[in-house]
Design a protein around this nucleic acid. Structure first.
Length: 482
RNA sequence: UCCCGAAUAGCUCAGCCGGUUAGAGCAUCUGACUGUUAAUCAGAGGGUCGCUGGUUCGAGCCCAGCUUCGGGAGCCA
Protein backbone atom coordinates (compact mmCIF):
# COMPACT_ATOMS: atom_id res chain seq x y z
CA UNK A 1 0.00 0.00 0.00
CA UNK A 2 1.25 3.45 -0.79
CA UNK A 3 1.97 5.71 2.10
CA UNK A 4 -0.66 8.46 1.92
CA UNK A 5 1.25 11.48 3.07
CA UNK A 6 3.46 11.75 6.15
CA UNK A 7 2.77 9.89 9.37
CA UNK A 8 0.57 11.74 11.76
CA UNK A 9 1.43 12.49 15.36
CA UNK A 10 -1.37 10.21 16.55
CA UNK A 11 0.36 7.25 14.91
CA UNK A 12 3.91 8.26 15.78
CA UNK A 13 3.01 8.48 19.47
CA UNK A 14 1.93 4.84 19.35
CA UNK A 15 5.07 3.62 17.60
CA UNK A 16 7.80 1.78 19.47
CA UNK A 17 10.95 3.99 19.61
CA UNK A 18 13.84 2.28 17.85
CA UNK A 19 15.91 5.25 16.76
CA UNK A 20 14.15 5.06 13.42
CA UNK A 21 14.06 8.25 11.40
CA UNK A 22 10.76 10.13 11.46
CA UNK A 23 9.38 13.28 9.93
CA UNK A 24 6.87 15.24 12.01
CA UNK A 25 4.87 18.13 10.63
CA UNK A 26 2.77 20.24 12.90
CA UNK A 27 2.16 23.49 14.72
CA UNK A 28 4.20 24.57 17.72
CA UNK A 29 2.25 24.66 20.96
CA UNK A 30 5.13 25.63 23.27
CA UNK A 31 8.88 25.89 23.17
CA UNK A 32 11.03 25.57 26.27
CA UNK A 33 14.73 26.22 26.22
CA UNK A 34 17.09 24.95 28.89
CA UNK A 35 20.81 24.58 29.25
CA UNK A 36 21.01 21.06 27.89
CA UNK A 37 17.96 20.79 25.69
CA UNK A 38 15.35 22.68 23.72
CA UNK A 39 11.87 21.21 23.87
CA UNK A 40 9.28 21.84 21.19
CA UNK A 41 5.73 20.56 21.67
CA UNK A 42 4.15 19.89 18.27
CA UNK A 43 0.53 19.19 17.43
CA UNK A 44 -1.02 18.35 14.06
CA UNK A 45 -4.63 17.96 15.14
CA UNK A 46 -4.68 14.20 14.62
CA UNK A 47 -4.88 13.83 18.38
CA UNK A 48 -5.14 16.08 21.39
CA UNK A 49 -1.69 14.87 22.45
CA UNK A 50 1.46 16.72 21.44
CA UNK A 51 4.71 15.12 20.44
CA UNK A 52 7.86 16.45 22.08
CA UNK A 53 10.78 17.22 19.81
CA UNK A 54 14.16 17.80 21.42
CA UNK A 55 17.19 19.68 20.11
CA UNK A 56 20.53 20.48 21.66
CA UNK A 57 21.50 24.08 22.36
CA UNK A 58 23.86 25.27 19.68
CA UNK A 59 22.59 22.70 17.23
CA UNK A 60 20.60 25.38 15.41
CA UNK A 61 21.19 29.07 14.84
CA UNK A 62 19.62 31.64 17.12
CA UNK A 63 17.93 33.14 14.06
CA UNK A 64 16.17 29.87 13.29
CA UNK A 65 15.14 29.23 16.89
CA UNK A 66 13.68 32.72 17.15
CA UNK A 67 11.19 31.79 14.44
CA UNK A 68 10.10 28.67 16.31
CA UNK A 69 7.36 30.21 18.39
CA UNK A 70 3.89 29.28 19.54
CA UNK A 71 1.72 28.91 16.45
CA UNK A 72 4.50 28.51 13.91
CA UNK A 73 4.42 25.50 11.62
CA UNK A 74 7.37 23.14 11.34
CA UNK A 75 8.72 20.14 9.55
CA UNK A 76 10.95 18.32 12.00
CA UNK A 77 13.21 15.46 10.96
CA UNK A 78 14.86 13.23 13.53
CA UNK A 79 14.90 9.91 15.32
CA UNK A 80 12.10 8.46 17.37
CA UNK A 81 13.58 7.67 20.77
CA UNK A 82 12.39 6.75 24.24
CA UNK A 83 11.90 9.92 26.27
CA UNK A 84 14.34 10.67 29.03
CA UNK A 85 11.81 12.78 30.85
CA UNK A 86 8.52 11.99 32.51
CA UNK A 87 5.28 12.94 30.83
CA UNK A 88 5.70 11.14 27.52
CA UNK A 89 7.04 7.79 26.43
CA UNK A 90 8.50 8.74 23.06
CA UNK A 91 10.00 11.89 21.63
CA UNK A 92 11.82 13.03 18.52
CA UNK A 93 15.54 13.72 18.64
CA UNK A 94 15.79 16.49 16.09
CA UNK A 95 18.32 16.45 13.27
CA UNK A 96 16.70 19.07 11.07
CA UNK A 97 14.06 21.80 11.34
CA UNK A 98 12.28 23.41 8.44
CA UNK A 99 10.01 26.32 9.30
CA UNK A 100 6.99 26.23 7.01
CA UNK A 101 5.39 29.30 8.51
CA UNK A 102 6.21 31.69 11.31
CA UNK A 103 3.75 33.23 13.75
CA UNK A 104 4.89 36.54 15.21
CA UNK A 105 4.30 36.18 18.97
CA UNK A 106 3.49 39.88 19.22
CA UNK A 107 0.60 39.37 16.81
CA UNK A 108 -0.47 35.74 17.05
CA UNK A 109 -3.48 35.77 19.38
CA UNK A 110 -3.25 32.19 20.64
CA UNK A 111 -0.55 32.29 23.27
CA UNK A 112 0.05 29.55 25.85
CA UNK A 113 -2.51 30.73 28.36
CA UNK A 114 -6.20 30.37 29.07
CA UNK A 115 -8.47 32.10 26.60
CA UNK A 116 -12.17 32.68 27.08
CA UNK A 117 -14.63 30.99 24.73
CA UNK A 118 -15.98 34.43 23.86
CA UNK A 119 -12.57 35.61 22.72
CA UNK A 120 -11.99 32.44 20.72
CA UNK A 121 -15.33 32.98 18.97
CA UNK A 122 -13.89 36.24 17.63
CA UNK A 123 -10.97 34.35 16.11
CA UNK A 124 -12.90 31.39 14.75
CA UNK A 125 -10.35 31.06 11.94
CA UNK A 126 -7.68 30.12 14.49
CA UNK A 127 -9.60 28.46 17.27
CA UNK A 128 -9.42 24.96 15.76
CA UNK A 129 -5.77 25.11 16.81
CA UNK A 130 -6.71 25.07 20.48
CA UNK A 131 -7.03 21.88 22.48
CA UNK A 132 -10.66 22.55 23.29
CA UNK A 133 -11.81 23.18 19.73
CA UNK A 134 -9.76 20.49 18.08
CA UNK A 135 -11.26 18.05 20.60
CA UNK A 136 -14.77 19.30 19.81
CA UNK A 137 -14.20 19.05 16.07
CA UNK A 138 -12.85 15.52 16.30
CA UNK A 139 -15.83 14.50 18.41
CA UNK A 140 -18.16 16.24 15.97
CA UNK A 141 -16.63 14.22 13.15
CA UNK A 142 -16.96 10.97 15.09
CA UNK A 143 -20.64 11.66 15.77
CA UNK A 144 -21.32 12.49 12.11
CA UNK A 145 -19.59 9.30 11.06
CA UNK A 146 -21.55 7.31 13.64
CA UNK A 147 -24.81 8.74 12.29
CA UNK A 148 -24.13 7.43 8.81
CA UNK A 149 -22.84 4.12 10.13
CA UNK A 150 -25.90 3.63 12.31
CA UNK A 151 -28.42 4.27 9.58
CA UNK A 152 -26.49 2.26 7.04
CA UNK A 153 -26.47 -0.74 9.36
CA UNK A 154 -30.21 -0.35 9.95
CA UNK A 155 -31.08 -0.36 6.26
CA UNK A 156 -31.70 3.35 5.82
CA UNK A 157 -30.78 5.21 2.65
CA UNK A 158 -29.16 8.62 2.77
CA UNK A 159 -31.47 10.90 0.79
CA UNK A 160 -30.20 14.26 -0.39
CA UNK A 161 -33.06 16.65 0.03
CA UNK A 162 -32.80 20.10 -1.56
CA UNK A 163 -31.18 23.04 0.14
CA UNK A 164 -33.19 25.46 -1.98
CA UNK A 165 -36.96 25.13 -1.70
CA UNK A 166 -39.99 26.98 -2.91
CA UNK A 167 -42.27 25.95 -0.08
CA UNK A 168 -42.31 26.93 3.55
CA UNK A 169 -45.19 24.60 4.13
CA UNK A 170 -43.95 23.32 7.41
CA UNK A 171 -43.95 26.78 8.87
CA UNK A 172 -40.86 25.81 10.82
CA UNK A 173 -39.57 29.34 10.91
CA UNK A 174 -38.53 32.46 9.09
CA UNK A 175 -36.65 31.71 5.87
CA UNK A 176 -33.66 33.11 4.05
CA UNK A 177 -34.62 34.24 0.59
CA UNK A 178 -32.71 32.97 -2.43
CA UNK A 179 -32.76 35.32 -5.37
CA UNK A 180 -30.75 36.52 -8.33
CA UNK A 181 -32.87 39.65 -8.80
CA UNK A 182 -31.10 43.00 -8.74
CA UNK A 183 -32.15 44.36 -5.38
CA UNK A 184 -31.54 47.90 -6.58
CA UNK A 185 -33.77 47.45 -9.59
CA UNK A 186 -36.52 45.00 -8.83
CA UNK A 187 -38.84 43.91 -11.64
CA UNK A 188 -42.44 44.85 -10.89
CA UNK A 189 -45.80 43.48 -11.95
CA UNK A 190 -48.48 45.81 -13.26
CA UNK A 191 -49.85 45.95 -9.68
CA UNK A 192 -46.46 47.08 -8.42
CA UNK A 193 -45.55 43.89 -6.60
CA UNK A 194 -42.16 42.30 -7.09
CA UNK A 195 -42.32 40.07 -10.15
CA UNK A 196 -40.78 36.81 -9.06
CA UNK A 197 -41.51 35.31 -12.46
CA UNK A 198 -38.30 37.03 -13.51
CA UNK A 199 -36.34 35.49 -10.66
CA UNK A 200 -34.00 32.56 -11.23
CA UNK A 201 -36.55 29.84 -10.45
CA UNK A 202 -39.48 31.80 -11.82
CA UNK A 203 -40.97 31.93 -8.32
CA UNK A 204 -40.02 32.80 -4.78
CA UNK A 205 -37.33 30.56 -3.36
CA UNK A 206 -35.75 30.10 0.03
CA UNK A 207 -33.20 28.05 1.91
CA UNK A 208 -34.67 24.95 3.47
CA UNK A 209 -35.89 24.96 7.05
CA UNK A 210 -36.35 21.19 7.01
CA UNK A 211 -35.91 18.28 4.65
CA UNK A 212 -38.83 16.46 6.17
CA UNK A 213 -41.48 16.90 3.49
CA UNK A 214 -39.11 15.70 0.79
CA UNK A 215 -37.89 13.03 3.17
CA UNK A 216 -41.40 11.66 3.38
CA UNK A 217 -41.49 11.39 -0.40
CA UNK A 218 -38.37 9.24 -0.21
CA UNK A 219 -39.75 7.05 2.59
CA UNK A 220 -42.84 6.40 0.48
CA UNK A 221 -40.58 4.59 -1.97
CA UNK A 222 -37.43 3.44 -0.16
CA UNK A 223 -39.16 2.70 3.17
CA UNK A 224 -36.37 4.01 5.37
CA UNK A 225 -34.39 7.13 4.55
CA UNK A 226 -32.54 9.78 6.45
CA UNK A 227 -31.28 13.21 5.60
CA UNK A 228 -28.27 14.90 7.13
CA UNK A 229 -27.65 18.35 5.83
CA UNK A 230 -27.52 22.04 6.51
CA UNK A 231 -30.72 23.73 7.59
CA UNK A 232 -31.45 27.43 7.76
CA UNK A 233 -33.65 29.48 10.03
CA UNK A 234 -33.78 33.25 9.73
CA UNK A 235 -35.21 33.65 13.22
CA UNK A 236 -33.73 36.45 15.26
CA UNK A 237 -32.71 33.93 17.87
CA UNK A 238 -29.98 34.85 20.28
CA UNK A 239 -29.58 31.87 22.54
CA UNK A 240 -27.03 29.25 23.49
CA UNK A 241 -28.96 26.57 21.58
CA UNK A 242 -29.95 28.22 18.27
CA UNK A 243 -28.06 28.81 15.05
CA UNK A 244 -29.17 30.38 11.78
CA UNK A 245 -27.34 27.59 9.94
CA UNK A 246 -27.22 24.19 11.53
CA UNK A 247 -27.09 20.54 10.56
CA UNK A 248 -30.14 18.41 10.99
CA UNK A 249 -30.62 14.67 10.82
CA UNK A 250 -34.09 13.61 9.73
CA UNK A 251 -34.94 9.94 9.42
CA UNK A 252 -38.29 9.11 7.89
CA UNK A 253 -39.70 5.59 7.99
CA UNK A 254 -42.62 3.96 6.24
CA UNK A 255 -44.59 1.51 8.40
CA UNK A 256 -43.27 3.02 11.65
CA UNK A 257 -45.80 4.06 14.25
CA UNK A 258 -45.12 6.47 17.09
CA UNK A 259 -43.78 3.76 19.41
CA UNK A 260 -41.38 2.49 16.72
CA UNK A 261 -40.31 6.08 16.17
CA UNK A 262 -39.52 6.54 19.85
CA UNK A 263 -37.64 3.25 20.00
CA UNK A 264 -35.55 4.30 17.03
CA UNK A 265 -34.85 7.77 18.38
CA UNK A 266 -33.72 6.44 21.73
CA UNK A 267 -31.59 3.65 20.29
CA UNK A 268 -30.07 6.00 17.73
CA UNK A 269 -29.00 8.61 20.25
CA UNK A 270 -27.58 5.99 22.58
CA UNK A 271 -25.63 4.28 19.82
CA UNK A 272 -23.97 7.41 18.46
CA UNK A 273 -23.05 8.55 21.98
CA UNK A 274 -21.60 5.10 22.61
CA UNK A 275 -19.53 5.45 19.46
CA UNK A 276 -18.09 8.72 20.74
CA UNK A 277 -17.37 7.18 24.15
CA UNK A 278 -15.48 4.34 22.50
CA UNK A 279 -13.62 6.37 19.88
CA UNK A 280 -12.96 9.76 21.45
CA UNK A 281 -11.62 8.84 24.87
CA UNK A 282 -8.72 11.30 24.93
CA UNK A 283 -10.81 14.20 23.71
CA UNK A 284 -13.71 13.47 26.07
CA UNK A 285 -11.30 13.17 28.97
CA UNK A 286 -9.78 16.49 28.08
CA UNK A 287 -13.19 18.17 27.90
CA UNK A 288 -14.24 16.51 31.15
CA UNK A 289 -11.22 17.95 32.94
CA UNK A 290 -11.81 21.31 31.35
CA UNK A 291 -15.41 21.33 32.57
CA UNK A 292 -14.30 20.21 36.03
CA UNK A 293 -12.06 23.30 36.20
CA UNK A 294 -15.04 25.50 35.37
CA UNK A 295 -17.25 23.70 37.88
CA UNK A 296 -14.83 24.48 40.69
CA UNK A 297 -16.12 28.03 40.70
CA UNK A 298 -19.73 26.96 41.01
CA UNK A 299 -21.59 26.21 44.22
CA UNK A 300 -21.88 22.50 44.99
CA UNK A 301 -25.58 22.21 44.16
CA UNK A 302 -25.17 23.63 40.67
CA UNK A 303 -22.52 21.16 39.60
CA UNK A 304 -23.23 18.51 37.03
CA UNK A 305 -21.99 14.96 36.83
CA UNK A 306 -18.56 14.59 35.26
CA UNK A 307 -18.98 14.46 31.49
CA UNK A 308 -18.18 10.78 30.99
CA UNK A 309 -20.49 9.75 33.84
CA UNK A 310 -23.26 11.85 32.39
CA UNK A 311 -22.89 10.22 28.96
CA UNK A 312 -22.68 6.72 30.44
CA UNK A 313 -25.81 7.42 32.45
CA UNK A 314 -27.76 8.43 29.35
CA UNK A 315 -26.56 5.38 27.44
CA UNK A 316 -27.33 2.96 30.28
CA UNK A 317 -30.78 4.11 31.36
CA UNK A 318 -34.09 4.04 29.53
CA UNK A 319 -35.54 7.43 28.66
CA UNK A 320 -38.65 8.34 30.60
CA UNK A 321 -41.72 8.23 28.36
CA UNK A 322 -44.92 10.03 29.22
CA UNK A 323 -47.72 11.88 27.54
CA UNK A 324 -48.17 15.61 27.50
CA UNK A 325 -51.25 15.14 29.64
CA UNK A 326 -49.26 13.25 32.28
CA UNK A 327 -46.58 15.94 32.17
CA UNK A 328 -49.15 18.64 32.84
CA UNK A 329 -50.42 16.68 35.86
CA UNK A 330 -46.90 16.40 37.25
CA UNK A 331 -46.24 20.10 36.67
CA UNK A 332 -49.50 21.13 38.31
CA UNK A 333 -48.50 19.18 41.43
CA UNK A 334 -44.88 20.33 41.33
CA UNK A 335 -43.15 22.36 44.03
CA UNK A 336 -42.23 25.37 41.85
CA UNK A 337 -45.83 25.50 40.63
CA UNK A 338 -47.23 25.49 44.17
CA UNK A 339 -44.65 27.97 45.41
CA UNK A 340 -45.17 30.26 42.44
CA UNK A 341 -41.61 29.82 41.26
CA UNK A 342 -42.45 29.35 37.60
CA UNK A 343 -42.21 32.52 35.56
CA UNK A 344 -45.11 31.13 33.54
CA UNK A 345 -47.30 29.15 35.92
CA UNK A 346 -48.97 26.08 34.45
CA UNK A 347 -52.57 27.13 33.92
CA UNK A 348 -53.81 23.78 32.69
CA UNK A 349 -54.11 21.41 29.79
CA UNK A 350 -53.47 22.99 26.41
CA UNK A 351 -50.62 25.33 27.25
CA UNK A 352 -47.37 25.16 25.36
CA UNK A 353 -44.61 24.02 27.70
CA UNK A 354 -41.91 26.60 28.21
CA UNK A 355 -38.30 25.69 28.76
CA UNK A 356 -38.55 26.11 32.54
CA UNK A 357 -41.27 23.44 32.56
CA UNK A 358 -39.24 21.10 30.38
CA UNK A 359 -36.18 21.65 32.51
CA UNK A 360 -38.12 20.88 35.65
CA UNK A 361 -39.31 17.56 34.22
CA UNK A 362 -35.90 16.54 32.88
CA UNK A 363 -33.51 17.96 35.45
CA UNK A 364 -35.51 17.90 38.68
CA UNK A 365 -38.36 15.41 38.48
CA UNK A 366 -37.01 12.53 36.38
CA UNK A 367 -33.31 13.40 36.30
CA UNK A 368 -32.92 11.66 32.92
CA UNK A 369 -33.87 12.19 29.26
CA UNK A 370 -37.62 12.38 28.77
CA UNK A 371 -39.80 11.64 25.74
CA UNK A 372 -43.00 13.62 25.79
CA UNK A 373 -45.80 12.44 23.51
CA UNK A 374 -49.34 13.17 22.39
CA UNK A 375 -49.37 16.95 22.53
CA UNK A 376 -52.51 19.03 21.91
CA UNK A 377 -53.03 19.43 18.16
CA UNK A 378 -53.22 23.20 18.46
CA UNK A 379 -49.57 23.56 19.49
CA UNK A 380 -48.10 21.16 16.94
CA UNK A 381 -47.54 21.04 13.18
CA UNK A 382 -50.18 20.27 10.57
CA UNK A 383 -48.60 17.05 9.34
CA UNK A 384 -48.81 15.18 12.64
CA UNK A 385 -51.25 12.29 12.85
CA UNK A 386 -54.35 12.98 14.88
CA UNK A 387 -55.04 10.73 17.83
CA UNK A 388 -58.41 9.01 17.97
CA UNK A 389 -59.82 11.52 20.42
CA UNK A 390 -59.15 14.24 17.86
CA UNK A 391 -57.57 16.44 20.54
CA UNK A 392 -53.98 15.34 20.51
CA UNK A 393 -51.45 14.36 17.88
CA UNK A 394 -48.94 11.53 17.75
CA UNK A 395 -45.98 13.78 18.40
CA UNK A 396 -42.87 13.12 20.40
CA UNK A 397 -40.21 15.45 21.76
CA UNK A 398 -37.02 14.09 23.27
CA UNK A 399 -35.81 16.41 26.02
CA UNK A 400 -32.24 16.35 27.31
CA UNK A 401 -30.79 17.91 30.43
CA UNK A 402 -29.11 21.23 29.80
CA UNK A 403 -30.15 21.65 26.19
CA UNK A 404 -33.87 20.95 26.12
CA UNK A 405 -35.42 19.64 22.94
CA UNK A 406 -32.85 17.59 21.04
CA UNK A 407 -35.37 15.71 18.90
CA UNK A 408 -38.80 16.61 17.62
CA UNK A 409 -40.81 14.05 15.69
CA UNK A 410 -44.14 12.44 15.07
CA UNK A 411 -46.15 9.84 13.30
CA UNK A 412 -47.35 11.56 10.14
CA UNK A 413 -50.96 12.00 9.13
CA UNK A 414 -51.40 9.53 6.28
CA UNK A 415 -55.11 10.12 5.69
CA UNK A 416 -55.59 12.43 2.71
CA UNK A 417 -58.82 14.08 3.90
CA UNK A 418 -57.58 14.63 7.45
CA UNK A 419 -54.29 16.06 6.21
CA UNK A 420 -56.04 18.34 3.75
CA UNK A 421 -58.29 19.51 6.57
CA UNK A 422 -55.27 20.40 8.69
CA UNK A 423 -53.64 22.18 5.75
CA UNK A 424 -56.71 24.39 5.45
CA UNK A 425 -56.91 24.86 9.22
CA UNK A 426 -53.41 26.28 9.51
CA UNK A 427 -53.81 28.41 6.41
CA UNK A 428 -51.47 26.71 3.97
CA UNK A 429 -52.38 26.93 0.29
CA UNK A 430 -52.82 23.27 -0.82
CA UNK A 431 -51.55 24.29 -4.25
CA UNK A 432 -48.10 24.84 -2.76
CA UNK A 433 -47.87 21.33 -1.36
CA UNK A 434 -49.78 19.38 -3.98
CA UNK A 435 -46.91 16.95 -4.34
CA UNK A 436 -46.82 16.29 -0.62
CA UNK A 437 -50.55 15.69 -0.52
CA UNK A 438 -50.32 13.26 -3.44
CA UNK A 439 -48.30 10.81 -1.31
CA UNK A 440 -51.52 10.39 0.67
CA UNK A 441 -53.50 9.95 -2.48
CA UNK A 442 -51.34 7.27 -4.08
CA UNK A 443 -50.42 4.33 -1.92
CA UNK A 444 -50.37 6.09 1.39
CA UNK A 445 -48.94 4.28 4.39
CA UNK A 446 -48.48 4.83 8.09
CA UNK A 447 -45.12 6.44 8.59
CA UNK A 448 -43.08 8.38 11.10
CA UNK A 449 -39.93 10.38 11.45
CA UNK A 450 -38.06 12.90 13.52
CA UNK A 451 -35.55 15.68 13.33
CA UNK A 452 -32.43 15.79 15.46
CA UNK A 453 -30.38 18.95 15.79
CA UNK A 454 -26.84 17.75 15.20
CA UNK A 455 -25.20 20.64 17.04
CA UNK A 456 -27.40 20.01 20.07
CA UNK A 457 -26.16 16.44 20.08
CA UNK A 458 -22.56 17.64 19.83
CA UNK A 459 -23.29 20.11 22.61
CA UNK A 460 -24.54 17.35 24.84
CA UNK A 461 -21.65 15.00 24.14
CA UNK A 462 -18.96 17.66 24.54
CA UNK A 463 -20.65 19.38 27.47
CA UNK A 464 -20.26 22.75 25.79
CA UNK A 465 -22.71 25.36 27.03
CA UNK A 466 -23.00 27.42 23.86
CA UNK A 467 -24.02 25.93 20.51
CA UNK A 468 -21.79 28.48 18.76
CA UNK A 469 -18.82 26.56 20.09
CA UNK A 470 -19.65 23.18 18.58
CA UNK A 471 -19.76 24.22 14.91
CA UNK A 472 -16.59 25.42 13.18
CA UNK A 473 -18.01 28.66 11.83
CA UNK A 474 -21.27 29.60 13.51
CA UNK A 475 -23.93 31.65 11.77
CA UNK A 476 -26.24 33.72 13.94
CA UNK A 477 -27.82 37.17 13.84
CA UNK A 478 -25.21 39.80 12.97
CA UNK A 479 -22.51 37.20 12.54
CA UNK A 480 -21.21 35.56 9.37
CA UNK A 481 -17.60 36.67 9.50
CA UNK A 482 -15.66 33.53 8.77
C1' U B 1 -37.33 40.73 19.28
C1' C B 2 -37.91 41.44 24.89
C1' C B 3 -35.55 41.57 29.99
C1' C B 4 -30.91 41.85 32.75
C1' G B 5 -25.67 42.64 32.72
C1' A B 6 -20.97 43.98 30.50
C1' A B 7 -17.31 46.84 27.36
C1' U B 8 -10.32 49.57 30.88
C1' A B 9 -3.00 46.69 28.13
C1' G B 10 -2.54 41.08 23.27
C1' C B 11 -5.91 38.04 26.98
C1' U B 12 -8.61 37.78 31.93
C1' C B 13 -9.90 41.43 35.23
C1' A B 14 -9.47 45.39 39.54
C1' G B 15 -10.15 50.62 39.59
C1' C B 16 -13.36 53.41 46.34
C1' C B 17 -17.76 58.89 46.98
C1' G B 18 -16.35 62.24 40.17
C1' G B 19 -10.23 64.76 41.87
C1' U B 20 -2.72 64.54 40.45
C1' U B 21 1.08 60.36 36.43
C1' A B 22 -5.03 54.36 35.26
C1' G B 23 -3.19 49.03 38.20
C1' A B 24 -2.67 43.37 38.74
C1' G B 25 -2.19 38.32 36.80
C1' C B 26 -1.19 35.84 32.34
C1' A B 27 1.00 36.50 27.46
C1' U B 28 5.25 39.04 24.82
C1' C B 29 10.53 40.71 25.03
C1' U B 30 15.41 40.61 27.84
C1' G B 31 18.39 38.17 31.53
C1' A B 32 19.17 34.07 35.07
C1' C B 33 18.28 28.97 36.01
C1' U B 34 16.73 24.19 34.85
C1' G B 35 15.50 16.91 30.80
C1' U B 36 11.66 20.79 30.54
C1' U B 37 5.96 19.54 30.70
C1' A B 38 0.87 25.89 29.65
C1' A B 39 8.58 25.21 33.44
C1' U B 40 10.46 28.61 37.35
C1' C B 41 12.68 33.44 39.09
C1' A B 42 13.95 38.75 38.06
C1' G B 43 13.32 42.98 35.00
C1' A B 44 11.27 45.74 30.74
C1' G B 45 7.91 47.36 27.02
C1' G B 46 2.74 47.71 26.28
C1' G B 47 -3.53 52.13 27.25
C1' U B 48 -7.65 57.20 22.17
C1' C B 49 -10.71 53.43 29.39
C1' G B 50 -16.28 50.55 22.82
C1' C B 51 -18.36 54.99 19.81
C1' U B 52 -21.07 59.80 19.75
C1' G B 53 -22.95 63.58 22.47
C1' G B 54 -24.16 65.77 27.31
C1' U B 55 -23.60 67.27 32.76
C1' U B 56 -19.32 69.29 35.57
C1' C B 57 -14.00 73.65 37.42
C1' G B 58 -12.78 68.43 36.53
C1' A B 59 -15.45 62.08 33.74
C1' G B 60 -12.57 55.35 33.22
C1' C B 61 -16.52 56.55 36.98
C1' C B 62 -22.71 60.35 36.26
C1' C B 63 -26.70 60.94 32.04
C1' A B 64 -28.64 59.90 26.84
C1' G B 65 -28.22 57.46 22.24
C1' C B 66 -25.66 53.88 19.33
C1' U B 67 -22.54 49.45 18.56
C1' U B 68 -20.81 44.83 20.09
C1' C B 69 -20.61 40.89 23.59
C1' G B 70 -22.61 37.65 27.59
C1' G B 71 -26.84 35.43 30.43
C1' G B 72 -32.13 34.58 30.47
C1' A B 73 -36.95 34.51 27.64
C1' G B 74 -39.61 33.70 23.05
C1' C B 75 -39.20 30.88 18.28
C1' C B 76 -37.33 25.83 17.72
C1' A B 77 -33.61 21.45 16.33
Amino acid sequence: MNKMGPLQIKDILQTAPENQSVVVKGWVRTKRESKNAIFIALNDGSTINNIQAVAEPGQFSAELLLTVTTGSCLKVTGQLVASQGAGQTVEVKITDIEVYGTADPEQYPLQPKKHSLEFLREIAHLRPRTNTFSAILRIRHALAFAVHQYFNEKGFFYLHTPVITASDAEGAGEMFRVTTLDLNNLPRTEEGAINFKEDFFGREANLTVSGQLEGELGAMALSKIYTFGPTFRAENSNTTRHLAEFWMIEPEMAFFELEDNMDLAEDFVKKVITYALENCKDDLNFLQNRLAEEEKNKPQNERYLPLLEKLAFVVDNPFERLTYTQAIEILLKSKPQKEGKFQFPVTGWGIDLSSEHERYLVEKHFKKPVILTNYPREIKSFYMKLDEDGKTVRAMDVLFPGIGEIIGGSQREEDYEKLLGRVHEVGIDPENVWWYLETRKFGTAPHSGFGLGFERLVQFVTGMGNIRDVIPFPRYPKSAEF
